[in-house]
Design a protein around this nucleic acid. Structure first.
Lengths: 213, 213
DNA sequence: CCCGCCCTCCACCTTTCGATTGATGCCGGG
DNA sequence: CCCGGCATCAATCGAAAGGTGGAGGGCGGG
């Protein structure tokens, strides 16, 4: 407790200037934190992690519409001696959470977290422990308890195209399948989501964050 | 320029602590701004506007999932001697923009705006001029040029239920209509959105922000 | 090694949806 | 006042989607 405690060095990556300023304001009040830099793009975050030495990266997932945060996370965590990456985003979509964790993120926080929760998560991450926002943790628990909503890769792909408004014929062409296969996938999807039409499947999957938009 | 210039008194309403801190940090650096208070709910914003005297309210639209910002805006602007309300949100959905403007908002900004744009918008609002983020303005122009995407109230209602996954039969029951009427609405919707299936209509309408989620 | 899951495909049948045409009443602007 | 848009409904027909019941190959784990 009385140890000098080397400060935790932070890198903030978020495309919203206001959010960056907010994070600075909130985290700078913690005496054991030191903000090395804040950047508006995922690319810059990746670049700076190479130059500066940082303990924890706070990273948004959505950068100006494009979802590059998870890629950047993967690139950062792939390196030797990589810092911990904490995802800090607005949404708690299942798909996003899983993607981020697969990419090597240490934790997943929501932007509506209170400041003390934020600080606690950063300290956890710096210590190598994982940090999940309570809401997110609940979601994951739900997910574990209900393995129903686990679509296969191919099924997700098909359903995404359905959500984009494509017909079965269009989907079959796009994926180089027969329409029979597309229908077959859909039947399985309907069973897993407990629905009986493409629109209902899209609604259910969207609600559960299995597909985008 | 040398005038003492009575400070612009601000009220910030946003459910994200980080964003509130960010706005404070960004706006407090402006010498002619004074932040009267910041609150985490739309209700509190409405209440405080009665007590404090404020020139401009910066208001989020989404509060913890529920969309109360536009209602709060309407309540605030309805009063005599009401302050200007600037909407400050993450999304640039057409429906939201129009709803906010109808509710009496003076401007509509996106959270990814640079600080100086923000400050400029606040000054515009304080002076009684309207302030739209460039992206938003472009969207509105587009909208004016292309009156195609203007669904009637009933049509929007039907399409929203389609997006929720309901069948025509279910929709007709829900709205106390015959299926013929539902189909008729859908035909008009398809024509207006230039699509030819319910899923495509949902995709198009979602992309244009005509319906939720 | 076999079982289960995923992915692929086929055939047949039923249901739903979409396209078309046409009709009625209401309301608001020119 | 009449036209046009909106909302409501009907009948019909063809096309798309969904339901059922198979079938085969690949791949990983018990």
């Amino acid at each position: 407790m009385t140890a000098p405690a080397a400060p935790v060095r932070l890198l903030l990556a978020d495309d919203h200037p206001v959010v960056r300023a907010g994070l600075r304001a909130v985290l700078e009040t913690e005496p054991d934190f030191e903000i090395a830099a804040d950047v508006p793009t995922a690319e810059e975050a990746v670049r700076l992690v190479g130059r500066l030495d940082v303990d924890v990266v706070l990273m948004d997932l959505q950068f100006g519409g494009r979802m590059l945060g998870s890629r950047a996370t993967a690139e950062i965590t792939a390196r030797p001696g990589a810092p911990r990456v904490l995802i800090l985003t607005t949404y708690d979509s299942d798909a996003d959470i899983l993607a981020a964790i697969e990419a090597g993120a240490t934790g997943y926080l929501l932007k509506d977290s209170p400041p003390d929760e934020l600080a606690a998560a950063v300290r956890s991450a710096a210590a190598g422990k994982s940090a999940l926002a309570p809401t997110v943790a609940l979601r994951l628990m739900d997910r574990m308890r209900t393995p129903a909503a686990a679509l296969s890769r191919r099924e997700t792909e098909v359903l995404q195209l359905v959500a984009d408004g494509l017909s079965n014929a269009a989907i079959s062409k796009r994926l180089f399948l027969s329409q029979a296969t597309v229908k077959s996938h859909l039947v399985h999807i309907y069973a897993k989501l407990a629905v009986d039409s493409r629109t209902a499947a899209v609604a259910a999957a969207t609600a559960q964050g299995l597909i985008r938009r």
